[in-house]
Design a protein around this nucleic acid. Structure first.
Length: 337
DNA sequence: AACACGGGGAC
DNA sequence: GTCCCAGTGTT
């Protein structure tokens, strides 16, 4: 009855009558399907006879990772920060930085008051430091537009700097428990395999991906929210890109990819740019120098990070136009103040 | 639709 | 050495 137990966590948030009724059956050692049959359609829990949701939530309750932002009492701001940090960055690397940030800047107002240099140093080597600056702008916008409270409305969320389709949905669903599809790379892959029987998701097509994921959602918002989290977790832990562990997948009996008996293509699926020596690499080197220096850095030190002047200058001017670096009159460079 | 944008860890 | 990762903003 892990599936039923999982509803306990959302009981207070939902206040739904249905949740209470389910909980009353908690001691009864019956499976989700039998429970559904007993309750009947009048209970309005179509989720109960939704095989996918039932399997997903049973598995999730048992196997979910103990991520710090999943702790009870995490604020909407905490969830938003965790999502922005997790954009293109593995959660294992995000967790310690997230802890530090939430301790230091527990809400949008305190974070908005920090300097850009402090923000960029605290971001450390998480990568894509423009995210840190956008998060800073985001906090200011939350203070200005929403009185310091992270909004629950998807449209309001998407209007914030650095918050796109995915992150807006993630905050609305994971924190505010809205019923809305949350589509990241994991969900796209799981849906491609489970529904379409394809080995991997193709190029992202936001509207179609959202429709496909939305079609799988159970009717109740709180259950749908858990379903969305679980689907992402499944993609991250079981239905992985390289080596899906179908043997232990809770969805294996009805997965069209598993049914097809197909195997993942071996070779590289697409051409990939080298990293070392790219502008992006050089930008990273320059940022590392500036982060680790307490004050302005002379040009000669910047010149040391890469031998080719054109590449170096391209990286530097890019950083300046992105607002990540400031050029001082005395030919020194610094993180923005 | 295709790019640019970090950095680290798994294989 | 290559691939992947809780994406977003710009062109």
């Amino acid at each position: 009855m892990a599936w039923v137990v999982s509803l306990r966590a959302v009981r207070s948030a939902s206040g739904a009558r249905g949740a209470i009724r389910i909980l009353s059956l908690e001691e009864s050692p019956v499976g989700a399907a039998r429970l559904a049959a007993r309750m009947g359609r009048a209970a309005q829990w179509r989720a109960m006879d939704d095989w996918l949701t039932s399997r997903l939530l049973d598995w999730f309750e048992e196997s979910k990772r103990d991520l710090p932002w999943r702790a009870e009492g995490t604020t909407a701001w905490g969830v938003l920060v965790s999502e922005v940090m997790s954009q293109q960055t593995p959660v294992a690397r995000v967790a310690p930085i997230w802890q530090e940030w939430l301790g230091r800047w527990p809400d949008p107002a305190s974070f908005a008051a920090a300097t850009q240099a402090d923000v960029l140093r605290a971001w450390g080597r998480l990568g894509y430091p423009r995210r840190a600056l956008r998060l800073h702008e985001c906090a200011a916008a939350v203070v200005e537009r929403h009185g310091g409270e992270v909004p629950a409305d998807i449209t309001d969320l998407e209007a914030l700097p650095g918050i796109g389709t995915y992150t807006a949905a993630a905050v609305a669903v994971f924190h505010y428990r809205r019923r809305h599809a949350v589509v990241d790379t994991n969900v796209r892959r799981v849906v491609a395999r489970f529904v379409a029987g394809e080995p991997d998701a193709g190029t992202a097509t936001t509207a179609a991906d959202l429709r496909a994921a939305a079609a799988l959602l159970p009717p109740d918002p709180t259950v749908a929210a858990e379903h969305s989290i679980a689907l992402m977790e499944l993609g991250a832990m079981i239905c992985t890109a390289r080596k899906p562990d179908c043997a232990v997948c809770p969805l294996r009996e009805r997965c069209r990819f598993k049914e097809s008996g197909a195997v993942l293509p071996e070779g590289p699926s697409r051409k990939r740019q080298r990293y070392h020596g790219t502008t992006r690499y050089v930008r990273g080197q320059i940022m590392a120098v500036l982060r680790e220096s307490s004050g302005p850095v002379p040009r000669v030190v910047i010149d040391g990070v890469w031998h080719e002047a054109p590449r170096r200058e391209a990286a530097l001017s890019g950083l300046i136009s992105d607002g990540l670096v400031e050029a001082l009159p005395n030919n020194h460079f610094t993180l923005p103040t």
